[in-house]
Design a protein around this nucleic acid. Structure first.
Lengths: 126, 126
DNA sequence: TTAACATATGAACATTTATTCATATGAAAG
DNA sequence: CTTTCATATGAATAAATGTTCATATGTTAA
């Protein structure tokens, strides 16, 4: 019986045979794999940094808190676009804000964000 | 002449007046802003980490080099999907590979990737 | 050289995403 | 209370993205 026939009958072994050398390692890694949710959260985090408008906003805020119109002026992006992106960043808890009179003052919500940004910048400058 | 009229005649000042307090800071930040290209590259980098399939692949590889079929087995993702994503990761120079017989062995291309991943995981576990 | 394995790739499709435009909300000043 | 400023938001649109399916390429063994 050929492989193809076996497959059609549902008898084919579940994975390839090439693993051999690594099979123990794979099993071990599998046991320690973070769960689906952790990977989801992790990718959501990076997704927030994966847009140049948002990364610019975060960079700007990493220099100090500022209001929306400052960001707009600094980045040459529409007020609406900035506001939409700030909402996403806020939802992701990467920035926080407070009101001050007519203005909304935004700031980075914790130091990790800055660290990750820096790592990224270090990486690309090579 | 009202603001609206001024705007219609193209005479409106270019930015809002709220800055006052921050205007010096903004000017200073503006002078030191990374250029457009840096932000682009930075966001491209994070974009690569901003997908759970890719993040899983990178996590797996951070444990050691492995071939495509190992990744497929470990992650429960289609071989095709893994291959497509590996191509993107390769293009972004986040992974490298070598051939060994029928297999293609992939590995993380440099330590920064692992560091950034770790920072991310640290951030989300709070 | 044929068959099987391991990986890669193109096209199609559905989904997500970012921006724009128009407008709404909210706060302060006149 | 009406106007102006600062910000937020909904709907629409266009673009980017990830997966699937089918198939191609390349490698080894029979």
């Amino acid at each position: 019986m050929s492989e193809r026939e076996a497959e059609q009958k549902g008898l084919k072994t579940e994975h390839s045979e090439c693993g051999g050398k690594y099979i123990d390692m794979i099993t071990k890694i599998d046991d320690n794999m973070p769960c689906e949710e952790e990977f989801f959260d992790l990718s959501e985090l990076f997704k927030m940094l994966g847009d140049s408008t948002r990364v610019k906003i975060l960079y700007a805020l990493s220099q100090g808190e500022m209001c929306v119109c400052d960001i707009v002026e600094l980045l040459d992006v529409t007020q609406s676009a900035v506001s939409h992106q700030l909402r996403l960043l806020k939802q992701a808890r990467l920035v926080k804000y407070r009101r001050s009179g007519k203005s909304a003052i935004y700031s980075i919500s914790d130091d990790h964000v800055y660290t990750i940004l820096s790592m990224g910048m270090e990486h690309i400058s090579e």
